[in-house]
């Protein structure tokens, strides 16, 4: 989980250069991201963590904080 958070934070730092993003901070409420960000984020998640983001997962509530993103990755990559 912590390793994934590091990767997520590194990706997000491209968009939040001068802001130290907290694990529970709402990244959409900060106003730094544009309309393309959601696509970029999904591509990052799929490539970095080798998972598929299904249309039903495409809810900003799943992606709005580092903790939620890490939980989402954990849930999608859990080995059955």
């Amino acid at each position: 989980m912590e390793e994934n958070k590091v990767k997520i934070r590194k990706f997000l730092s491209r968009f939040f250069k001068k802001h130290e993003l907290g694990d529970d901070e709402d990244i959409f409420a900060l106003g730094f991201v544009n309309s393309l960000f959601a696509m970029q984020l999904i591509m990052f998640l799929e490539k970095e963590f080798e998972l598929a983001v299904d249309p039903q997962d495409m809810d900003f509530a799943n992606f709005k904080t580092i903790n939620l993103l890490a939980s989402f990755v954990e849930k999608k990559t859990v080995k059955v």
Partner: peptide
Amino acid sequence: LGKEGIGVSHVALSCLD
């Protein structure tokens, strides 16, 4: 297609890409 509310933010932007 997809789900309610993601028409532009996901579907259209992906197609337009």
